[in-house]
Each structure stands twice: as structure tokens, then as C-alpha cells.
Amino acid sequence: MSSNKAIKFSLLIIFLVAWSVISLSVGAAQVSIPDIIAVLQGFKVDSLQSTIIIEIRLPRILLAIFVGAGIAASGAAIQGLFRNPLADPALIGVSSGAALFAALYLVVSGFFFNVLYGLAASAFLGGLLTTCLVLEVGRRGGTNSAMLLAGVAINAIAIACIGFLSYISTDMQLRSVAFWALGSLGGADWNKIYVASLIPLIIIALSLESARLNAITLGETEAIHLGVSIGSFRVRIIFLTALAVSIGVALTGVIAFIGLVVPHLVRLTMGSTHQTVIPASALVGGLLLLVADTASRMLFAPAELPVGILTALIGGPFFVFLIMRSKGSLGI
């Protein structure tokens, strides 16, 4: 790694730690930094501050970092696999597919089995199914734009189905269904962190695919000539990204645009090889979702804005900017 890249990676980690501390401190109840340090060291165990830090804010911060990192790294991998810089788990319908199955689980199957794991499992199933569906439709259409359009269609279908589910669901169910459509980090607790801790493992697994991801950006035939077994490689990437995105959706709902915008920012500033793009996207994605979540807690405090609204409000215009700037060079 060049020293330049090493500096950028170090800066990212420093930002991430610094913002985590800020995020621990700010909120409806301010906690001073010495108090935070004291709590983290195990003092002040029974205080209100301890409860706020350990039970509310710390899991929320970790959840933001894990989920943001997972979505962004998945976005980078999916863009590589589809050779399309505009592919994004939310854009091509994977997230809404996962959300639909999560909502379906809540409304239809009710509450047998452990709710959290059941949710995560059905979201994963939904994410996996939609990824395969989009991939197959895209393959039959023969072009990258066919795949994106398939994603748009599947997105619309999934959202319509979620709408239908909320129409037939009870008041109590309705609220949780709406939660998946918007995305929020509220309700983070340590149980969710246990599930989310799979995400760093997925990111490591994706990083191990870097060389093959680089190869496939040249085209499938070229990748075969560089020794990549396309079939099993594709299955691994789809499985890993669907898993990361679905875990994210099950825990926080659909958080739009992180998966699209972050890999772009990374490529613009740090280069395009996936050895850099995957880990850097994970760091930037974690940082961005953490910043957005802190903002969503602060803007209308003590009320909270669902963070998905914020990421879409920032990401949407950026996406439009990208399209206008591309002038055909984005390959769609």
C-alpha cells in the first residue's frame, strides 16, 4: 500500500473514532467526555449516564457503523460484479425485496420463533431471491441497463406489496411495516449488535474476492481468461452481499443510497482497485451512516427523523449529479 493510501485509511479510522465519541456525547441528554470515559472504564455503573451510554448510544453507534459498512462494501462488490457503477443494493431492488420478506414475516407468520432471527432469516431469503431475479432478468435482457430496469420494476413490485401488507395489517403491525420502508436506527440494542457482528466477517470475505472483482470489471470472458471461475464466484458475491444487506434491512430497514454513493466517493478519492475500494467503502459507509444518524437525532430533538429519509435526501441529489456528469461514461 502506498503511504498516501495508508494516510487516508488512518484518517478514516481517526474520523470514525472521533465521531463515535461525539455521538456518544450528544443527544437529548448531553454527556460530557470525561463522563463518557468514566463510564467506558466501568465506573459510574448504576448512573443514568451509564444507562444512556451503554444501553442506548453505544449499541446504536455500533449498529450504524456495522450496517453502513455492510451496505457500502456490498454496494462496491455488486457494482464490480455487475460491471455497473450505478448498481446499488437499494436501487436494484435487493433491499426492498428483503424489506418485503421482513414485513411478510411480521404480518403473516406472526411471532413464532425468535422474532429477530426470524426477521433476519426471512429478510435474507427476500434479498437473495431478488438478487437472483434481477441477475437473471438482466442476463436475458442482455445488457446492463436491462438489469437496472429489472431492478426498478422489482423495486416497484416490492414496494406495492409492502403497501398492500400495511393495508391489511393491524395497527401494531402497520407501524413496524412502515419502519422497514424508511429505515431507522432507533431501537438499537445489544441483541441486534450480536446479529450485526456477522457484517464485519462478511466484509472480510468480500475483501478476499478483491482480485477477482478487479478481473471481472474487464468483462466475463476476460475474467475467465484471467482464471476466474465465474459461476462459483458470482454465487459467492451474491450470497455475501445479500446476507450483509438483508441483515442491515432486518435491523434498520431500508437505508438508501449509502451503497451507491460511498463506493463512488472512494473511487474518486482513493482509486478503483477493489483491494482499496472494499475496505475503504466499509469505513466511509460506517462513518457516513453514523454522521447521518447523529444528525437525525439532533435535527428535531427530542423527536427523531428516520435516518433513511436523511440518506435519501443527501444521496438522491448526489445520484442526479453523477448521472449528469457521466455523459455516457457510466456504461448504462
Binding site: 460491471r83 478487479n214 478481473a215 470489471t217 474487464l218 476476460e222 484471467l226 476466474v228 474518486l268 457510466l330
Partner: peptide, 18 residues
């Protein structure tokens, strides 16, 4: 070639070594 990602030229060359 279908390469649509902003790789640097020497990075493209290095792909041959995969």
C-alpha cells in the same frame, strides 16, 4: 473492452498478473 471503472493504466496492466 467493457472496463467502465476509473482504474489507472498501471492498475489495468497489473490485472494481467492475477
Amino acid at each position: 473492452s467493457e472496463l467502465e471503472f476509473p482504474f489507472k493504466c498501471f492498475e489495468v496492466l497489473r490485472l494481467g498478473r492475477i
